[in-house]
Design a protein around this nucleic acid. Sequence first.
RNA 1: UGGGGAAUCGUCUAACGGCAGGACAACGGAUUCUGAUUCCGUUUAUCUAGGUUCGAAUCCUAGUUCCCCAACCA
Length: 572
Amino acid sequence: MKASAPAAEPREQGPNFIEAIIEEDNRTGVYGGQVVTRFPPEPNGYLHIGHAKSICLNFGLGLKYGGRTHMRFDDTNPLTEEPEFVESILGDVRWLGFDWGTHLHYASDYFEQLYRFAEELIKLGRAYVCSLTAEQISEYRGDFFKPGRDSPFRQRSVDENLALFRDMRAGIFQDGQHTLRLKIDMSAGNPNLRDPPIYRIRRARHHRTGDAWCIYPLYDYTHCISDAIEGITHSICTLEFEAHRALYDWVLAELKNIPPGASVAPPRGSPKQIEFGRLNLTYTVMSKRKLLRLVNEGHVEGWDDPRMLTIAGLRRRGFTPASVRNFAALIGVTKNDAPIDMSVLENAVREDLNASAPRALAVLRPLKVVLENWPAGDVDHVDLVNHPLKPELGTRKVPFGRELYIDAEDFEEQPPKGFFRLAPGKEVRLRGAYFITCTAVKKDAGGKVVELTCTVDRDSRGGEAKDGRKVKGTIHWVSAAHAVDVRARLYDRLFSVENPDDTFLEQLNPHSLDVVVAKAEPSLAQAAPGTHVQLERVGYFFADPKDSKPGAPVWNRVVGLKDSWSKEKKKG
RNA sequence: UGGGGAAUCGUCUAACGGCAGGACAACGGAUUCUGAUUCCGUUUAUCUAGGUUCGAAUCCUAGUUCCCCAACCA
């Protein structure tokens, strides 16, 4: 053993694989040291925690490398897109704390350019109008094992294609009658390369361009061009687009062949698509389809139900933007397709709220306690610290009297081994107040404990006995005469199984929501919506911004405190 | 009978030819007026088989397992 080994420096966490690519690009100068990323949602639904990972990744990269990040809506399917979603998405990204500056873009901004590029591709012999039906296209495409066959329309002349495509735009044809297809390779192993359609005829009102168009470009064609137009350098998407990368690169490469003097110049950018593994979390579902069923079939109260891992739901539940960002940083970025343990998310919000949330006392399942040696009508006001980690937040006066409530969980008539809360003949400390000892138990006809009689040691005011004796347990309490009733919603994980499958509706956690009326210290009835509090020994709560009324907050449990006693108890 | 990807503690994730590290979880202990927080400690990992090398998670070969792709969705 070395006599004086230097303290080991914690090793640096290396860059993730995307940062490694960027740093290499910066080193070689391919993009002149520029880093431009984008977050490109389709405005057809609400964002969830998985999108949050992508938002943090893209905006985080822009920030880290002194570049920028664009907000871009991939709005090429007018059937499913609505301005309402644009607004909610923008609000969610802002809430997470990110800023796109002047770079709010829409793929629909590029419709005219996209159209011209398509005409140029036709002129280059790289695109043709196909008049097969959707079923026929699918049939001609072959399958994984069988190569496709050329469309009978594949050899139309440039002039015919151009005329047809212009007529498509002009609205001469019916919906679905023709498509514009790329001419690539019907026998390619990658089915995305088997002459993919890039334009379809669809008479639908677009949320931004209205009725200006009756043909709309498809994703694979639109996305790469949009990236190139905006000067995106690193186009980051999820793993399921890996097989699309060949198409992405093909389109941009072909565009480079547009001759000088054409009606459009090729876009200057040469973005590269990089795929990462999307977020999966235990005890939840992430697919839009499943989330939709939860909402539509009434298993939750809406997209912003605090049990939903939508950003709107997280926000209402009381997660903080910082906790979501920290979570994203914690889980890292790789190409592995793997689930993250829900406890990592829960831990991230505990960590944030532990540092910031002021403390308060409330009893969720009240059990009355009468102090037999405390005069009725006598009221004391004891000092409680607002935040043990932040003494500068000071103390507050909390009323104390003869009749109190404690939590039913904090009393056991026959205490199990290791229980150091209240029990007949046992003494505990009421947090910040006095020591009490249980002397009698009152039960109802059914044998249920309904009231406790205790004695109080008035010399223990402030929570320290004069004679120096110690108690093992400290429990929370509230004065019955001063307590206010507050609504508390005790949220828990939405699913009771780690990996909900297709029978997810049968795997819902029946206890994901428990509504109680708690007895709380008076200040909790005055809290403004949107404020956080730690109910000591219970958990972190958030005054619901939607359901709270002035003077009547509704408290959402964000997450419980860690509870090693309940674990101990389970072990027996 | 195609194409594209991925395999490191229980779970995520580092190490890029040179001590397998961190976080979460679990377990034990210390401190504590929150059975919280904090602190300390413990257990547990390189998919398999060959090869190259003084030395392999890392390079090579062969295999295994898992994920994605056959919308006029994104």
